[in-house]
Structure formats: C-alpha cells, structure tokens
Design a protein around this nucleic acid. Structure first.
Length: 604
RNA sequence: GCGCCCAUAGCACAACUGGAUAGUGCAUCGCCCUUCUAAGGCGAGGGUUUCAGGUUCGAAUCCUGAUGGGCGCACCA
C-alpha cells in the first residue's frame, strides 16, 4: 500500500525540489573539477546544500569550496570562483554569489520558488513523502509498560514519541509495524493478582492488613469489585488461613516485605487452586490491559500487535532461544544458574538467563523476543525505552550478535524521563504506591492535541520539565494552538470565499502564481519547499520534534501573511493565486500535524 | 567507585549534524481590531552557549579535563 503511493514520486527523473537540483549541479561541477585535475579523482566529497538563514545570503548555500580547499591547494574564495564558473546555466537560478569565507550562495528566481506550490497540490497528502526507507520493514516497539496499573504521564512521552516516530518512518518510505510488548508473566504480575485478591477478601468482610509491597492504587479496588460481582464469595478464604505461617511484613519483628509478599503469593496459589488463581490473575491483567488499550486509543496511539510474554513462554520460544545460544557455546553453568557470555560482545559482565531455582530471567524472554522479531522478517527493529533502561542495551545487542544477527538491526531509542512539577515542587511517581498522575488525567485536563504536541516538541534525549499547573492553567499557550489556529484561519477564509460567491479554482490559481511577489508570499513558498527535506532529515535521526519546529515556522509565516494582506479580493487572478498559496499551506499543516498525531481543526 | 545521558536568554526548548550576525514560545515593554477568527501581527530589551584547555579556514556542535544535574550498575521486572 505504502509502496504504491510512492510511485508517482519515484517516477520523476529528477527530484522536483530546488535544493536537490542545486546539489545535482554541484555534483556535476565536482566531476569537472576532477577532469580538470583541480581535485584528485579519488576524492568523493559529500555535496552539502543548505537552506540559508539570512535572506541576504540567497536561498541556498554550499560550503563546497571550503571543504575542498585543502584537496585543491587553493584558498577557499579562489576555488569558489572556479566552481561558480563551472555552474551550468540554469534558468531557475537568478544569480550565484561568493560570500564570507567562501560560501557560494544561490539566489533562485520567483517562478522557481513558487513552482513548489504546483508540486504540492498535485501530491496533496503525499507531499513530503520520501524514500529514505526504501521499502524496508521496521518494527517499532514502544510503551510496553507492565500491565500492573494505568499509564502515567511518564509513559505518555514514550507513547507520543513512539507513535510520531512510526508515522514519520511511514512517510519516509518504511513499512512500519507498531508493537506493544506485554509483560504478562513473572513475579510482578503475581503481586498484582495477590493484591487484587486481598482487596477482594476485604470486600468479603475479612480484616486484611494490606502488605506494604502490594499494589495500592484505587484501580485495584475496582478490579476486586468486579471479581466480587462475578464470583460472589467463591474465592473467599479467612484472613486467618491466608496469613498463617507467612513471614511478617516490613516493620514487624523479623519482618521482610519481599518475603511477606512472596509467601502470600504462594498462599494465594495454594488456597485458590490453579483454576481460580488463574481467574484472579486474568481478571487483573485483562482489566488493566483493556484500560491501557483504551487510554492509548484515546491518545491517538494504536498498535498492530500486542505481543504477550506469556505466549512466548507457552510456545517454548524462550527454551529454543537458550538452546540456540547453548549450541553456539555462549552459555555456561555457574552456581547452579545458566549464564550468557555477554562479555564476549563488550557487555560489562555476563548475565543470568536461568536462575538457580530454575526460573528464567526477564532477560531470557527478551533474548527470545528479539530473536522472534527478526524471525518475523523485519529489516530493522526499533525499541523505545525509558532512559533508566540504558544499561540494558549492551546485553540485548550482545544476544543478537550471539545469534549471528547484525546488532545494528536493532536501534534502541532512549527517552528521558519527564520530571513533573506541581506548585513548583517535584512530584515523585510510583505505580506501586498508587501515587502518580495518570495519562488519562493529563488528557482530560489539557486535551489530547496539547499533550501530544507538548511531549513531542522536545528532543527525546533532552530532559523534560513538565509543570502540570502550567500545562493546565495556561494550555492556550501551548504552541499547538498557534499551528492549529493557522489551519483554522485558512479553512475559514476558503469557506468565506465560497460564501461570497467566489469559487476557488486551484488551476486558475496556479496559472496566476506570478501575481505573488510580496515578501510574505515568497517567504511562504520558501518554507513550503523545505518540508520534504525536513521530513527526510527528521526520519533519518528519529526526531519528530523537527517537524514540530518546522510547523511553528510555517504557521508564523502564515499568520504574518494573514495580517499583511487580504485574500478575498476583487481581482480574480490575485485572489485565486493567494487562495492557492494558502491552501498549499493548509495541506502541509495537515501533513505535518498528522505525523505528530495532532488534529487539524477547521474551526477554533 | 565505574558506566550512560544532559547542561544554550528569567523559564521551557531549537539550532539543517562542523558554517556566516545562536533562534522559537512563554514572561517583560511599546504599537496594531469598523477588515477573511487579536488563540494573531509589527517592534524592543534580554547570551562570554556551565568552566578550562585542545583540534581547524570556522566549534553550542568534535576531543581532553573539571563542575553541576538525571539515570544505571541483581540469580528484580
């Protein structure tokens, strides 16, 4: 599907964008410099064309002369003169200048600047698509929060970032799948199930001293209530038999909170029996997972696959992975446990995959999981993790190497924590204690668009301060409204134009583009032309924030234009041309906001 | 103690991956609504890019060291 949509773009012999055109011209020049013996034949410089920041530097600039100055043995400005002399005549280029230490500046004429509008309106929602992915398949795994409670605002950043990266890669020509790895196995899940059961026992009238290490959030009550509705008193046991022989909790004599909860888990399993324990366990996991799914869907984040860790265990995939490592002699036994030789691949120490008690570690499932991802045929794996997991990267890459796969097929993107403030004070968050601000609360308070934009306008590795009071009370100051407002304004103008009996005709507008010559108009055309380049670059480095910043710039150009000129004017050709230009802006705003998962409202 | 990440205007963040005079939004100050949405525009002030060295035509960006902050160093998940 995605591949097909790229065909119109690929069919073009030459990229339709000025920047690429100039790059091509310069590549030809480099060839001629070689033929003339000015630079060595073996040299293959990367031709670098940049958008200029300052209009007095023209529209595009290259540092080619400065880069080649050493190889040519000529001062940069002298070399620049030789390069300029070799630049082929191109009707779209008005003039070429040498400036500063040896920059070569290209000034493009107006018709070249506005030609982007035609390209844009032909491609519409496809404008900005590129082929850096070359149709390669990529699996983006993100969020993957343990289903032990609702998502909090810390998860929100990973969700917003991951979803935007996935969108970005799709636009850049990758075949993208999105996946959530569900850790529905292991001790944490047993603690969860036991927590629910204990709350249930309270509902049944038992007096329960709740363990300090159990999950305490309100959602635990909710799940236990539905358990009560479904099972009545069937799962009831007396507090006396539940706590008999259990290691005391923390704070008590000879107490130990870890042993306390582990003993209670064993009790729950024994007293309930496998079937009923499983019922409690499933009720807890299913309920929380459903909540997470709905929450994310409400946040505009969806997944192609919810990959279950239990399924991985039940189908023997983990055992198979360990056997594979054993066959490669990468596993040894020490102290009754099985260790993986991750130090062979640069990890700081070897890692346990099977514990002395026979239980497999989380790392063992993760090896199997990543191996499974590759077996499903993906060319590239992207994992988006919280930065607190950074120490985990070397061992997973080591496992991939041990399995004879290229560790570069895995790209781990780390997202820094959002540090929350309320009333100027840092908020501590913990799922266990039940003290945290949920993603749902954030969505309710500031709205989906504002939250998505807020998260994604920062570079992922940048630490982020999140002032909740500010986010709520001054949500109008979120730049997302600035961008959406530009879109709404354009929609309003186009609608009003129709109301006044002026039908908008893009064809007539394109034919009349030469009417456009104001500073604001050429600026908008220049901004529009940057978009495909921004997308390609952002995709290569997984940085959706670049789209956010670009959209702010484009919105600014539009607002500025809006204040400077009237669009719905008497003169047919001018009106059509202006409406055409702003509908091009509208299209790019839509395309860009779509990558960020933000809506483009017609009214505000 | 060792390792990873970060440090840019009062605040929150950018900076085309080594380019020209370091930008944007808040906040502050001045001006602009009888017009297509003022959730807007125009202008002003605000910087030794934490510090000290180094690399080169050129450094916020690369290297070394220091300082400050976040995180990680389990037979936990």
């Amino acid at each position: 599907m995605l591949k097909i949509s790229f065909l119109p773009f690929l069919k073009l012999k030459r990229p339709p964008y000025m920047k690429q055109k100039i790059a091509q011209i310069l590549t030809d020049v480099v060839q001629q410099l070689k033929e003339q013996g000015i630079i060595p034949e073996s040299l293959n410089p990367r031709v670098n064309v940049e958008n200029t920041r300052d209009k007095t530097h023209g529209d595009f600039a290259t540092n080619l002369a400065m880069m080649l100055t050493k190889a040519a043995g000529l001062p940069p400005r002298t070399l620049a003169e030789k390069i300029v002399a070799l630049v082929a005549d191109e009707p779209l280029i008005e003039k070429v200048e040498i400036a500063g230490p040896g920059f070569i500046n290209f000034f493009v004429n107006d018709s070249a600047k506005f030609s982007i509008v035609k390209t844009l309106l032909e491609q519409n929602s496809r404008f900005g698509q590129c082929n850096v992915g070359q149709g390669r398949s990529v699996l983006v795994e993100f969020v993957s929060a343990n289903p032990t409670g609702p998502l909090h605002v810390g998860h929100g950043r990973g969700a917003a970032y991951g979803a935007s990266v996935a969108n970005l890669l799709a636009v850049a020509g990758f075949k993208v799948s999105k996946e959530y790895y569900v850790n529905d196995a292991g001790r944490q899940m047993d603690i969860l199930a036991t927590s629910v059961w204990l709350r249930y026992l309270s509902l049944c009238g038992e007096t329960i001293v709740f363990p300090s290490n159990a999950y305490k959030g309100d959602y635990i009550y909710v799940i236990s209530e539905s358990l009560k509705t479904q099972f009545g008193d069937t799962l009831k046991r007396t507090a006396l038999e539940v706590f008999a022989g259990v290691t005391p909790d923390e704070g008590l004599e000879e107490g130990d909170k870890e042993k306390h909860i582990d003993d209670l888990i064993v009790k729950a399993k024994n007293l309930l029996g496998a079937t009923h324990y499983e019922a409690v366990f499933s009720a807890a996991v299913d309920s929380i997972l459903l909540d997470i799914k709905e929450d994310l869907a409400g946040f505009g984040v969806t997944f192609d696959e919810w990959f279950s860790e239990r399924a991985l265990m039940d189908t023997g995939v983990i055992d198979a992975a360990i056997e594979k490592l054993q066959a490669a002699d990468k596993i040894y036994e020490k102290g009754g446990a099985l260790w993986f030789r991750s130090t062979d691949y640069g990890d700081e120490k070897d890692r346990v995959v099977v514990r002395e008690n026979g239980l497999k570690t989380y790392f063992a499932s993760d090896i199997a999981y990543h191996f499974n991802k590759l077996e499903r045929g993906f060319d590239l794996l992207i994992d988006i993790w919280g930065s607190d997991h950074h120490g985990y990267v070397p061992r997973v890459k080591a496992a991939m190497q041990a399995m004879n796969t290229d560790p570069n097929a895995l790209e781990v993107l780390l997202v820094q924590f959002a540090i929350l403030y309320r009333g100027g004070e840092k908020l501590a968050m913990s799922t266990r204690s039940g003290q945290f601000v949920t993603l749902r609360e954030l969505r309710d308070e500031v709205g989906c668009d504002a939250a998505r934009f807020f998260y994604v306008q920062r570079k992922s590795e940048q630490h982020m301060d999140f002032d909740l009071d500010l986010a709520v009370s001054k949500s109008n100051e979120n730049p997302v409204y600035y961008i959406q407002y530009a879109h709404a304004r354009i929609c309003r103008v186009l609608a009003l134009s129709e109301e006044r009996g002026y039908s908008f005709d893009a064809k007539a507008g394109l034919a009349a583009l030469s009417c456009l010559n104001s500073e604001q108009e050429t600026h908008i055309a220049t901004e529009l032309a940057k978009y495909p380049d921004i997308v390609a670059r952002a995709a290569q480095v997984y940085e959706p924030h670049q789209i956010a910043y670009y959209l702010k710039d484009l919105a600014h150009a539009l607002h500025s234009y809006y204040n400077a000129s009237q669009f719905i004017v008497e003169e047919e050709s001018v009106r059509q041309a202006r409406l055409t230009l702003i509908s091009a802006v509208k299209q790019v705003l839509q395309n860009g906001l779509a990558i960020l998962g933000v809506s483009a409202p017609e009214k505000m």
